[in-house]
Design a protein around this nucleic acid. Structure first.
Length: 338
DNA sequence: CGGAGTAAAAGGCACTT
DNA sequence: AAGTGACTTTTACTCCG
């Protein structure tokens, strides 16, 4: 939207407040100030990027200049096995001048042979379709799937595919890309849409990270919080509180060596109780894929170290229809800061 | 039922023969 | 490449209100 100010001299862009992700319709929109992006926590779609500069750096004053200066053509995609860039040779046996040329037939033959016939190319087609299938089953945005397809190409160039299952590679790559993009999926989730067992996904992932040398530090628990919260039908305040708890736990180094998912689960459990919207350990365990015992252990650590005082549990657990917040939501703020 | 807690088994990771 | 060791998580269980 363009808004013209009183003098009519300056134009400024006004960003409409996006409330839902255009791709997956999830309300988990987050502004990532460090990266200058607005991203969807659920599918990882980058809704707005480079918030300052949207347009091209050049200007054109007439049509001729525009054609000259535009550098883009048809969009390139990694999802088509030849990136959509392959050359097709026309069926007529004629060159540009219209004269018949005998070598064109030979050219066309080779072209078609090279384009799809090598076995690696065929496995790439399969891998990309698998990445696409699993990616959409996990609700991942297109750019995540694109990045996965790109990484598969890189793996192919380094000859890492030979002798390994295409399916396993594709799954591990998808898992890796999710982590890279800061929207990690658990091994359990990825495994559930793949025909490969979790164990092999993990093993292949480690192999890839060694060979392709992407330095990924372990994902932060906060990257899981949003998805788990929505799974538990928890509201925004709980999500914010849980992330706050995670951040403080990280500062106090309570998270090193622990599984990030465990920390996220514990933080959510604590946050839900603090906000008066309690979930049982069983529910949290089911939503996060960790055990109740683990939630207990982690959450006890956190509560102790951060000096959080949890409100007592109400025995009226059966369909607590009264959502009257037991204590003011702000009171927990002080407890956390100490 | 929901939570607290425990011991032992299992699993993953960084190391070493 | 199997072994080791410190570690977290899971399994299975008991106890409490």
């Amino acid at each position: 939207m363009i808004e013209v100010d009183k003098n009519g001299e300056e134009e400024k862009k006004v960003y409409r407040a996006t409330t839902k992700c255009p791709e997956c319709d999830s309300p988990l929109i987050r502004q990532d100030y460090e990266r200058g992006e607005i991203v969807c926590d659920s599918c990882g779609l980058v809704i707005e990027e480079n918030l300052m500069d949207q347009g091209a750096e050049w200007r054109a004053f007439d049509y001729e200049q525009m054609v000259k200066r535009a550098r883009t053509g048809a969009p390139m995609t990694y999802m088509i096995h030849d990136k959509g860039l392959s050359t097709f040779i026309d069926w007529r046996d004629a060159n540009v001048q219209g004269k018949s040329a005998s070598n064109i037939q030979r050219l066309r033959k080779w072209q078609n042979r090279v384009r799809v016939s090598s076995s690696s190319e065929r496995s790439l087609i399969f891998a990309i379709s698998e990445i696409d299938r699993m990616g959409s089953a996990l609700g991942l945005s297109k750019d995540v799937r694109e990045a996965a397809a790109l990484m598969y190409r890189k793996a192919m160039e380094k000859d890492l595919i030979r002798g390994r299952s295409v399916e396993g590679l594709a799954t591990a790559i998808l898992y890796a890309v999710c982590r890279q993009k800061g929207i990690p999926r658990t091994l359990e989730e990825v495994g559930s849409v793949s025909r490969v067992k979790q164990k092999e996904i993990g093993r292949t992932y480690r192999f890839l990270s060694r060979e392709l040398d992407f330095r990924l530090q372990p994902s932060s628990p906060s990257e899981f919080v949003s998805r788990f919260c929505s799974r538990l039908n928890l509201k925004e305040d709980v999500r914010a509180k849980a992330i706050e708890i995670v951040n403080q736990a990280e500062q106090q180094e309570l998270t090193v060596g622990k599984g990030p998912i465990s920390i996220a689960a514990a933080a959510i459990y604590i946050a839900a109780r603090l906000c008066g919207d309690t979930r049982t350990q069983k529910e949290v365990a089911a939503a996060t894929g960790v055990t109740e015992v683990t939630i207990r252990n982690r959450y006890k650590d956190i509560v102790e170290a951060l000096g959080i005082e949890l409100p007592q549990l109400q025995p009226s657990s059966t369909t607590a229809s009264n959502l009257t917040s037991s204590s003011s939501p702000l009171s927990s703020e002080k407890e956390l800061s100490g």
